[in-house]
């Protein structure tokens, strides 16, 4: 009876949280109601976090000896992470906001990656599709984490110059393919039972390392002025990773919130790139200086002089 009540409470809290997130986001999209929107979303978050402690009533017998330690760790992590980030967010100068968003976004990506890591190391996946989905969430989360940290470092002035090396796109492509290949190897070995050369958990470490390196390599060549668009992309990535981990854990609140942020973040990225007169592909895959030089090398057309008073009529 107690476990049923706990399950119902968790389910109801998650439902309320999902509704408040959507409603809050809707209110945040208009200047007049924006301030109340974040409050509503905050209430949803608090409700979901408090309710999730009811999971202790519904655990496996094998977990019971660890339970006290787990709850202590959970409270400690909530206190350190929550209070630390809260104070940092309150204190930081208004001009330093974008890099704070980047670092918090990186934290979210890291959390999604960590959840995936627990699932992978614990060998919790039951079939191929679940394993593939977990690996996908881990990949996106890890890229988002390391990429966001680089974005933060650039905006904070820790890294001053964009690092560009020859044939960078090819190197990035190879690293990305390597991550996919390792993921494929993990799936193949787990399913077929072939000798994996190294242990599967070593391959999982390698997979995370390559994914983190790819996030760094992908962000390093992009200049500081483009960082808001890049942060927005990583925001969408983290949302997607959270949604995928929600699917792995079977938690609908994570699925809904993550996917909403994934789609909203994608649209925001497109809008921000459009406001800069650039395409997203242009931001991600070309070096800003090069493209300007190439485009404006030859000016075509004729020059006509006109008086200022005529300009209005000319432009009509």
């Amino acid at each position: 009876m107690l476990t049923l009540l706990a399950q119902l409470t968790i389910g109801a809290a998650n439902l309320v949280a999902a509704f408040l997130f959507l409603f809050g986001l809707k209110r945040m999209s208009s200047p007049a109601t924006a301030a109340s929107g974040i409050r509503l979303a905050g209430i949803g978050m608090v409700a979901a976090v408090l309710a999730s402690f009811l999971y202790v009533l519904n655990i496996d017998d094998s977990v019971k000896p660890y339970l006290l330690m787990n709850i202590t760790l959970a409270l400690l992590a909530l206190a350190i992470g929550g209070v630390g980030a809260w104070l940092a967010g309150r204190k930081v100068a208004m001009t330093a906001m974008p890099q704070m968003v980047a670092i918090y976004n990186g934290m979210g990506g890291g959390a999604a990656g960590a959840i995936a890591a627990v699932e992978l190391f614990g060998n919790n996946a039951h079939d191929a599709s679940q394993l593939i989905v977990t690996l996908l969430g881990a990949l996106i989360g890890a890229i988002s984490m390391s990429g966001s940290v680089i974005a933060w470092a650039k905006l904070q002035g820790v890294i001053n110059k964009p690092l560009r090396i020859k044939s960078q796109q090819i190197i990035n492509g190879v690293v990305f393919l390597a991550a996919i290949a390792v993921a494929g190897w993990i799936v193949f070995v787990t399913l077929s039972g072939v000798d994996p050369l190294l242990s599967i958990s070593s391959w999982t470490y390698i997979f995370f390392a390559i994914a983190l390196i790819f996030g760094i390599l992908m962000t390093l060549p992009i200049g500081g002025a483009d960082m808001p668009v890049v942060i927005s992309i990583y925001n969408a990535f983290t949302g997607l990773a959270v949604g995928i981990e929600g699917f792995v854990l079977g938690n609908p609140a994570l699925m809904i919130a993550g996917m909403v942020v994934g789609a909203a973040g994608l649209l925001l990225t497109l809008l921000m790139a459009k406001a800069m007169n650039r395409s997203v592909a242009n931001v991600l895959f070309t070096n800003f200086g090069d493209i300007v030089k190439a485009k404006h090398s030859a000016i075509k057309g004729t020059e006509r002089e006109t008086a200022a008073s005529n300009a209005g009529i000319e432009m009509r």
């Binding site: 929107g37 979901a48 993550g258």
Partner: peptide, 12 residues
């Protein structure tokens, strides 16, 4: 704001 909303990952 959407960055805050994917903070729900803490529940996971």
């Amino acid at each position: 704001g959407s960055n805050f909303i994917h903070g729900i990952v803490v529940v996971g």
